[in-house]
């Protein structure tokens, strides 16, 4: 239970950080951290497939895409002052969501629990990754290599733009 609470808390902190961060790169990394937490939780709930997909798609692939996107943004645009009004709106939005969740989420989860079925034990994460989804790992390595080369290909242009 402490493990779950820790992971949930970490996910929430990382998610808020992702929204609040001024640096887009930090946002992307925090978002990846949210995905990693979610993935570990899914694993603990006996849903290894969902966990592996979450880890590979959200933590791996989407992060690479975000980082590539951030690298494409010209240096000049990041120097302009940001509108920080959302900083005031965010606590309000969180408050409203919290109150609504208090009322609606417990019955929603209760209804979902009626549909639940216990997933079969697929073994530890290493087994799932190495024995069941090995080709995906290869794909992830290719994706990481692609991400590195995308950034390498785009950055020389930024120097010439300056």
């Amino acid at each position: 239970m402490i493990y779950h609470t820790l992971l949930f808390s970490l996910a929430v902190i990382a998610a808020i950080w992702a929204v609040m961060a001024r640096n887009l790169l930090t946002s992307a990394i925090m978002l990846a951290l949210v995905s990693v937490c979610a993935s570990l939780l899914l694993f603990n709930f006996n849903a290894p497939w969902a966990a592996v997909f979450e880890l590979s798609v959200c933590a791996g692939l989407i992060t690479v895409l975000f980082i590539s996107g951030v690298s494409l943004i010209r240096a000049s645009t990041s120097t302009t002052a940001e509108k920080m009004t959302y900083l005031k709106v965010l606590p309000l939005a969180l408050g409203i969501f919290g109150i609504a969740a208090w009322f609606y989420l417990p019955p929603f989860f209760a209804e979902l629990a009626g549909w639940k079925y216990t997933a079969a034990e697929a073994g530890p994460i290493g087994k799932v990754l190495w024995e069941l989804r090995r080709p995906d790992l290869l794909g992830q390595i290719a994706m990481l290599a692609a991400g590195v080369f995308v950034i390498k290909s785009v950055f020389p242009k930024r120097r010439t733009v300056k």
Binding site: S68, M143, A146, V154
Partner: peptide
């Protein structure tokens, strides 16, 4: 990535390699 796409026999692996292909294509166009 293209070799991955044509040799796989699983939809999720297919998806992963298709995405690698999309990212490299995007970068190659730029």
């Amino acid at each position: 990535a293209m070799c991955g796409v044509v040799t796989t026999s699983d939809f999720f692996t297919l998806y992963v390699f298709i995405e690698v292909l999309a990212v490299t294509s995007f970068a190659l166009i730029t």
